[in-house]
Design a protein around this nucleic acid. Structure first.
Length: 860
RNA sequence: GCGGAUGUGGCGGAACGGUAGACGCACUAGACUUAGGAUCUAGCGCCGCAAGGCGUAAGAGUUCAAAUCUCUUCAUCCGCACCA
């Protein structure tokens, strides 16, 4: 046994031992009567190297999985790789390595890193999304979606990323109109693309958020906003030309206040509505709007623009003839792409009316204005009041949300056959086709005779050819492979061609958690008993950046597969923990702008006073913590930490430094502190093992030590159970270590029991050192198979307690009292303290509050 | 603008409505050392010699008692944002 703690020596040794024991293998199914627990981290993209964010994510889940396992659960804790995606194509371009080769190399490398971190994964269940064993089932799901009518192709104005040369889903374009990956400004293009009908589940995806009590509130709110449900009515106006013009409104009660209509520039009716006089202006405006990117359209400080088509429409409720305009503040993608404008009660319409001198008709009387006067608005009135100038609605109060007036308006519209109640969502169908090579091929065939024909299930997988020429130019390289492209039509046998688009990688990750339950299945996507036993994921851990994309898509797939009869659960992830970012020490030049502000640590110049300075300008730099990133040059490589301190220290530091959901500042001194703690535990054990300790024979200390041991068991168990408070759990381990270190009972059986308890409690956090110490203490088998200790309530009992004396709620003294003493006794003891005497002299006590074992409060 | 969250020592962070600052880092003093960035002992919210007073972003309220509950304000972070 080594005299000093040397992680480099013990960590590989035990990792090998665990592999021999097959310690981390999960049973196919839990044993009869055994409870299951499914712990899952978001699987990584195989970039080649783990970063600290990964380490934090996986460590958190690993501790949860290990504790559950020690508590007797059958634990499913798998890992895999989200392996399709653009970086592989970029690497192929840069380095001339085929994407597949690059990806599998990276996977091997990362797998090795994960093993060295001591993460307890069942690697037999590894899932790699770019492997045909996996993606044949991705394709199979696509076919099911096609059969169910939830996959379709349509020509649409889509987001085109000019850098990555592909289209993107709405979810993949940020609020500035940039690609989530390339950060390029996204353009709108009309293209024929594949979509999945996620909107079919809009209502359920919204409603079921209610069930997800174990999710962070903000993630639920983000999804709620993204789905964006609004209720109102659909109303049919009629154009002069006699065409019906459908609008959606949340305020059908203001129909009598409509003074004009606005269509989105892309609205299909615009061509027909443009009069000869206005045609040129309309065309110009349409073209300008098409050129304008999403960012211009929203960032322009809300300056309203628009053009009159020259035509009119008839308001169905009062026959009013109102002009039809086009303007880019109306979006083709929402509602019907056309609005009825009520400038008096909608701020956007108000601004538009002001800009173009259009009339404003008030139909809601604000509460504090005298009736029957001209109301001169300086802004749209969107508050409550009473309906006026509105025919059958006059006199009806306007409430919040769907108040009285809205309900009445809808009833009126439905009775008259002019419109109907309608619910609209912001959620759009999911655009899933990508003009990229390294992705899952869409299993469809274009036949000149039969049209779109699905690849028969028996022909799956549609293999992605692995030897192709990646050019980096637009268009899929698959189109350049005639032998792959050309196939006979499965239906009629005529020469046909394969679909060359591949699927969005988010599809691959929308069901991987299901495959883990039966990863090796060669004949079915998964076995129903297995999937329904292990699902749902009990604890999912990952970054907040997936709050919408991945989590929403996964929920959608789960619901779809449930409706296919393949699953019984409604929601995939019972509890979600979004872990905080890992931040690194960062040097900032406050005088510089943007990216140049960040000075990588390696480039910082240190002056004589040891102050950080800009290497070029010599300016004093600001020191702060910021999320680790390449551009800031403030990252810490997990490899360096592993080499320097070992996996156990890295894990301990990460868990101790901050609660899991908060950001974590990577501080070398604190890492050092954790290393010292492990070293102290090491010394404590080996001093005992080497017989350096002799019992001093103080019998009174036994009770105290026993209490310390059981207090630690309880505190660590509860801290983990109640919201994964690993930081305080480790603090409790430190307390126990301190108590053992100070104990006069070294060398006694009780002391040894204390050490064993410390080692077992430490095991989920620092698995290697715990195993070493466990064996050093002469225990057989693995510490990770030891049952999680239970605390004995008896051991927690005390004879005397320290109680405090308060006078009017202010702390004045403290005293020792027998545990659970009655109020009268305690009050008497309290009154005898110096602090109490001083304040109670010559004063009458109005009231005494006694909190058992805690305090006595005298109210004067 | 709308929505969500967070404000506690020098720092990270603890506190079922009941002794604010657990645990750790940093720091200070001492011990042991050839040395120490090792280890051990002690101290460590602020003011004060002390007694004591003041302290959880600010202000009010509820309560015998508030970091914790309620209201108002401020600050910071995050998400959404012309969604009809």
């Amino acid at each position: 046994m080594e005299a000093r703690y040397n992680p480099a020596a013990i960590e590989p040794k035990w990792q090998q031992y665990w592999q021999q024991l097959a310690l981390d293998r999960t049973p196919e199914l839990p044993a009869p009567g055994q409870r299951k627990f499914y712990a899952l981290s978001m699987f990584p993209y195989p970039s080649g190297n783990l970063h600290m964010g990964h380490v934090r994510n996986y460590t958190i889940t690993d501790v949860i999985a290990r504790v559950k396992r020690m508590q007797g659960y059958a634990v499913l804790h798998p890992m895999g790789f989200d392996a399709f995606g653009l970086p592989a194509e970029n690497a192929a371009l840069d380095k001339g390595i085929p994407p597949a080769q690059w990806t599998y190399q990276n996977i091997a490398q990362m797998e090795d890193q994960l093993r060295r971190l001591g993460l307890a994964y069942d690697w037999e269940r590894k899932v790699v999304t770019c492997h045909p064993d996996y993606y044949r089932w991705t394709q199979w799901i696509f076919l099911k979606l096609w059969e169910a009518g939830l996959a379709y192709q349509k020509e649409a104005a889509v987001n085109w990323d000019p850098v990555d040369q592909t289209v993107l889903a709405n979810e993949q374009v940020d609020s500035e109109g940039r690609s989530w990956r390339s950060k390029a400004l996204v353009e709108k293009r009309m293209l024929k693309q594949w979509f999945l009908k996620i909107t079919h589940y809009a209502e359920e995806l919204l409603q079921d958020l209610e069930q997800l009590r174990g999710w962070p509130e903000r993630v639920r709110v983000m999804q709620e906003n993204w789905i964006g449900r609004s209720t109102g009515a659909e109303v049919t106006f009629t154009t002069e030309q006699g065409d019906p013009l459908l609008v959606f409104t949340t305020r059908p009660d203001t129909l009598w206040g409509v003074t004009f209509m606005v269509l989105a520039p892309e609205h299909p009716l615009v061509e027909k509505l443009a009069t000869p006089e206005q045609a040129a202006a309309v065309k110009d405006y349409q073209q300008a709007a098409a050129r304008r990117s999403e960012i211009d359209r929203t960032a322009e400080d809300r300056e309203k623009t628009g053009v009159w088509t020259g035509s009119y429409a008839i308001n169905p409720v009062n026959g009013a003839k109102i002009p039809i305009w086009i303007a880019d503040y109306v979006l083709m993608g929402y509602g019907t792409g056309a609005i009825m404008a009520v400038p008096a009660h909608d701020q956007r319409d108000f601004e538009f009316a002001r800009t173009f001198g259009l009339p404003i008709q008030v139909v809601v009387q604000p509460p504090d204005t005298p009736p029957n006067t001209d109301i001169d608005l300086t802004a749209a009135w969107t508050g409550g009041g009473v309906m006026i100038n509105s025919g059958p609605l006059n006199g009806i109060p306007v409430g919040k949300g769907e108040g009285e007036s809205v309900a009445q308006a809808i009833a009126y519209l439905e009775a008259q056959g002019l419109g109907r109640r309608q619910v609209t969502y912001r959620l759009r169908d999911w655009l899933i086709s990508r003009q990229r090579y390294w992705g899952c091929p869409i299993p469809m065939i274009h036949c000149p005779q039969c049209g779109l024909v699905p690849v028969p299930e028996s022909d799956l997988p549609v293999l992605l050819p692995e030897t192709v020429q990646i050019t980096g130019r637009g268009g899929s390289p698959l189109a350049q492979l005639p032998e792959w492209l050309q196939v006979p039509c499965p239906r009629c046998g005529a020469p046909a061609r394969r679909e060359t688009d591949t699927m969005d990688t988010f599809i691959d990750s929308s069901w991987y958690f299901l495959r883990f339950t039966d990863a090796q299945n060669q004949t079915a996507i998964f076995d129903p008993e297995k999937v329904n036993t292990w699902m749902p994921v009990d604890q999912y851990v990952g970054g907040i950046e997936h709050a919408i994309l991945h989590l929403l898509y996964s929920r959608f797939f789960t619901k779809f597969l449930r409706d296919q009869g393949l699953l019984t659960c409604d929601e995939p992830f019972l509890r979600l923990l979004t872990q905080g970012m890992v931040q690194g020490l960062t040097y900032v030049n406050p005088n510089r702008q943007d990216k140049d502000r960040w000075i990588p640590a390696a480039r910082v110049r240190w002056d004589e006073q040891n102050q950080p300075r800009d290497p070029e300008t010599g300016e004093l730099l600001q020191v702060m913590y910021a999320t680790m990133s390449k551009s800031k040059g403030n990252g810490v490589d997990p490899e360096d930490v592993l080499r320097h301190y070992g996996a156990d220290t890295a894990r301990m530091f990460i868990l101790f430094k901050a609660p899991p959901e908060k950001d974590l500042e990577w501080d070398e001194a604190d890492v050092e502190g954790q290393y010292r703690f492990l070293q102290r535990v090491w010394r404590l054990v080996f001093e005992e093992v080497h017989g350096e300790n002799l019992p001093s024979g103080d019998p009174g200390a036994g009770k105290e030590l026993r209490r310390a041991i059981h207090t630690a068991i309880r505190a660590v168990s509860e801290d983990i159970e109640e919201g994964y408070q690993f930081n305080t759990a480790i603090a409790e381990l430190m307390k126990l270590s301190n108590a053992l270190s100070d104990s006069p009972l070294k060398g006694s059986p009780l002391y040894r029991e204390g050490l064993e308890t410390l080692v077992v409690l430490l095991a989920p956090f620092a698995p290697h050192i715990s195993e070493e110490l466990w064996h050093a203490l002469g225990k057989g088998d693995s510490v990770h198979r030891a049952p999680w200790p239970r605390w004995d309530p008896e051991a927690l009992l005390v004879d005397t307690v320290t109680m405090v004396v308060q006078i009017n709620g202010k702390l004045r003294d403290q005293f020792q009292a027998p545990a659970n003493a009655d109020a009268a006794t305690v009050q008497q003891l309290a009154q005898q303290t110096e602090g109490a005497k001083r304040y109670l002299e010559n004063r009458s006590i109005k009231k005494v509050i006694v909190v058992p074992n805690k305090l006595v409060n005298f109210v004067l």
